[in-house]
């Protein structure tokens, strides 16, 4: 009678099994709730699907229509890119400047940091309603302040010319989030670098230009990537405050996607829009990553 001999498992194999067992809740959740729906949406993007009836396969028709016939697709893309080109650098600059100021040794600095960070934790819809009031042409604080300088403020959210700039101004509300990350980075810069720069005769500007900025580039890089991704996901404020108007002036890409999915019930087309958005964001992120070699400084990295 043959007796099966069980070979003892190696330590590495046992560890691998335990590792898979321990991460399996996340993996299962990822497969079911993220990867599965993503694959499903890729399929749906090639169908005519209204949620309530079975999808019918169309092949690449949705994509062809999007690029060749859909004026609103290009318009929404243009609005989103315009917003990104202005709001992202503005947010990076303001956040960085704020962090520099709040990195100084001034009385009550903790309070100021809290005050500037606080807006970042307020929820999206509440912020949108608050800013709708601030931008109110008749009673809003924005026009009230402008009136001090003899400027008659516009009807911000009712004007096709001013609605998008209003949302860009509003984007500064969230710079506190970036500021905190910058602040952490600033406090991680060794003081010895500044001491050495002073010995070499560097003034404050030189220190900022040649010490602070290079040392902060990894943080700027991170905020840039997150900012670009965030602007392409811009939705709540435009949905609550303008619903894409007036005259499509604030028809952001995500808003157009939402309208297709849930107003026009074109879920297949909306899925196609979502995949194009994914590719755009992916390409932009790759571009930023590729450019990082030229301007991001990593201490300890080996330069070839």
């Amino acid at each position: 009678m043959a007796i099966a001999v069980r070979r003892p498992m190696t330590l590495g194999r046992r560890e691998a099994i335990w590792a898979y067992v321990l991460i399996s809740p996340w993996i299962i959740g990822f497969i079911i709730f993220t990867a599965g729906p993503m694959v499903a949406s890729l399929f749906l993007s090639m169908t005519n699907y209204d949620v309530v009836n079975p999808p019918t396969f169309l092949g690449a028709s949705n994509y062809v229509k999007m690029f060749t016939q859909d004026r609103q697709f290009w318009h929404a893309l243009r609005v989103t890119l315009t917003y990104a080109v202005v709001a992202v650098p503005l947010g990076l600059t303001f956040g960085f400047m704020l962090a520099l100021m709040l990195n100084a040794r001034i009385p009550g600095v903790s309070v100021w940091r809290t005050v500037y960070y606080m807006p970042s934790v307020v929820s999206g819809v509440a912020v949108a309603i608050l800013w709708s009031t601030l931008f109110n042409a008749r009673f809003g604080i924005v026009n009230w302040v402008l009136s001090w300088f003899g400027i008659k403020g516009p009807a911000w959210l009712s004007s096709p010319d001013w609605a998008l700039p209003a949302l860009i101004i509003m984007s500064l509300w969230g710079v506190g989030g970036g500021m905190i990350i910058y602040l952490a980075g600033l406090q991680g810069i060794p003081t010895t670098l500044y001491d050495a720069a002073k010995v070499d005769g560097a003034n404050a500007w030189h220190q900022l230009r040649h010490v602070t900025l290079p040392m902060m580039t990894p943080i700027i890089f991170y905020n840039l990537v997150m900012g670009v991704i965030g602007t392409f996901q811009y939705f709540t404020n435009a949905y609550v405050m303008t619903r894409g108007g007036p005259v499509e002036a604030t028809l952001f890409y995500n808003l157009y996607l939402y309208f297709n999915a849930f107003s026009y019930m074109k879920m297949g087309y909306a899925s196609a829009l979502a995949w194009v958005l994914f590719v755009i964001v992916l390409l932009l992120t790759l571009l930023i990553f590729r450019s990082s070699a030229a301007w991001v400084y990593y201490e300890g990295s080996l330069k070839r």
């Binding site: 299962i28 497969i31 079911i32 990867a35 599965g36 729906p37 694959v39 499903a40 399929f43 749906l44 949620v51 309530v52 009836n53 079975p54 999808p55």
Partner: peptide
């Protein structure tokens, strides 16, 4: 296999009206 199953399930049409 699980991913494919999930995707198929997600793609499955709603009950035909």
């Amino acid at each position: 296999a699980v991913l494919a199953g999930t995707a198929l399930a997600a793609c499955a049409p709603a009950p035909a009206p």
